[in-house]
Computed example of a mutant assay.
Amino acid sequence: MQTFLDYLLPVSIAVIMFGIGLGLTVSDFKRVLVSPKAVLFGLFGQLILMPLIGFGIAFAFDLDPIYQLGIVLIAACPGGTSSNIVTYMLNGRVALSVSMTAFNSFLIILTIPFILDLAFSLFWTSTKEVNLSMIDTFKDVLLTVFIPVLLGLIARHYSPVFVNKLRKPLRFILPGIMFFVFLLVLLNEKENGDKSMLEYWDLLLPALCLNVLVMFVGFFTSGFAGINHEGKYTIAIEMGLQNSALAIFLANNVIQIDGLSLIAVLYGGFSFFSTLIIAWLMKRYMGRGEAVKVG
C-alpha cells in the first residue's frame, strides 16, 4: 500500500488544488499583488511568530526532548493544502491562502534548517544538519500547487458557466478526497503496527495548544496590522494548519530520528477539524462591528 500512497498523495493534492483553482480568478491574485500587506504579514506570522510559539510550548510542557523537537518541527513547517481547503470552505481569501502556501513552501528551504539547528542545540545533546533540496521542493510545489491552480483558472476563464455549476458541490467533494486519502494513510500505519493516537493522549494537549494559540495570535496581530476580517481569519487558518506530511517526511527521511514524527502525526490527525471550528467561530463572531479595512 505504501507504494500506492506514494503516487496517490501528490495526485490527490493536485486534484484538490485544481478544484480550488476553479474558484479563483486572475483578479484575486492581482489584489494580493497590489495589496501585498496581508501576504507579507502572513509570512511573518508563519516564519517568525509560529516558531517562537513552538519554542515556548516546547519549554512550557514537561516533554521528552524528542517531543520538544517535534513541536518545533511542526511549527516550522508551512501551511499545507488543507489550509487552502478550509479557507475555501469558509469563503475566506483563497488567493491569499494559496499565495502564502506557495511562497512559504520555498522560504522553508532557508528557515527550517536554521530553526531545527537551534532546536537541537536547546533540546538535544548534539546538532544534526538538515539539507532540503531546492530543486525537489520547487518541482513538488510546481506540480501539486502552481500548475493545477493555473489549469483551474484557465478552465474557469474559458468555461465559466460550467465551472460555476461545479463550485458548490466542490466544497464537499474536495474535503471528501482529502479525508479518503487520510483514511488510507491511517490504515497503512495500522498495518505497519503503529500505535493508536489515543495511546499518546498526553501529547495531544501541547499539540492542541500550538494549534489554538498560533491561530489566535495570527488573528489578533493581523488585526493590529490593519488587515481586513477575511484576511485575519485566512491568516489564522494558514498558521493553524501546518503541512504535517512535510514534517513527517523531514522526521523520517531527512533527520531520521525514531519518534520525531509522532507530534506531526498527532497534529495532522486533529488539526483540520479544530482549525475549521475555530476559524468558523472567528468568522462568525469575531468580526462584528469591524471598520472596513484594506489588506
Rank of each mutant, 00 (worst) to 15 (best):
L184F: 09
G152F: 05
I277N: 04
V141L: 14
V72E: 08
G268K: 02
I112L: 13
Y285D: 13
F216N: 04
M197G: 03
K195D: 10
A119V: 09
L118I: 13
L266Q: 01
G287I: 12
M286D: 07
F224L: 15
G42H: 08
T137E: 00
T25K: 08
N192S: 14
V32G: 02
I263D: 09
M286L: 15
I74A: 03
L183A: 14
I154M: 08
F272I: 03
I173N: 02
S126G: 11
L43Q: 08
S82N: 15
Q68F: 13
K195V: 04
I147D: 07
L170R: 03
Q242W: 03
N91L: 10
I53F: 11
L90F: 09
S261I: 01
G92H: 01
N253K: 11
N164V: 14
F114R: 09
I237N: 00
G92K: 00
E189K: 10
L40G: 11
I255A: 07
A38L: 04
Q242E: 01
I48K: 00
G80Q: 02
L132Y: 12
I53M: 06
V86K: 00
Y233M: 06
T111Y: 07
L174Q: 05
M215I: 14
I20H: 05
Q2E: 15
I277M: 10
P175K: 02
A58F: 15
I108F: 11
D258N: 05
L266G: 03
L174C: 10
F55L: 02
G42V: 06
D202G: 01
S133L: 06
N243K: 01
V15I: 14
L184V: 06
N131Q: 14
T234R: 03
V32L: 07
G268T: 01
F59V: 07
A14G: 14
D28P: 12
V145S: 02
V26Y: 07
F179C: 01
P36V: 14
V145L: 05
F172W: 11
L213V: 14
Y233D: 13
F61Q: 02
M100N: 08
D62G: 11
D117C: 04
T111A: 15
D64V: 09
V145R: 00
L49H: 02
G193R: 03
R31E: 08
P51A: 05
T125M: 15
G21V: 08
V39G: 14
V254W: 07
V130K: 05
L8K: 04
I20V: 13
G240T: 10
L40K: 05
I173S: 00
T127V: 14
G79A: 15
S159Y: 11
G259P: 13
N192K: 07
L203T: 12
I173P: 01
M1Y: 07
S159W: 14
E191C: 05
L24F: 07
F270D: 03
S159A: 11
T125I: 15
L52E: 04
A279E: 00
D6T: 07
L187Y: 13
F172N: 08
M1S: 12
S27C: 03
I255S: 12
W201H: 03
T87C: 13
I235Q: 06
G295S: 12
G80F: 00
I255K: 02
L8T: 11
F123T: 09
L40Y: 04
T221W: 05
I147C: 09
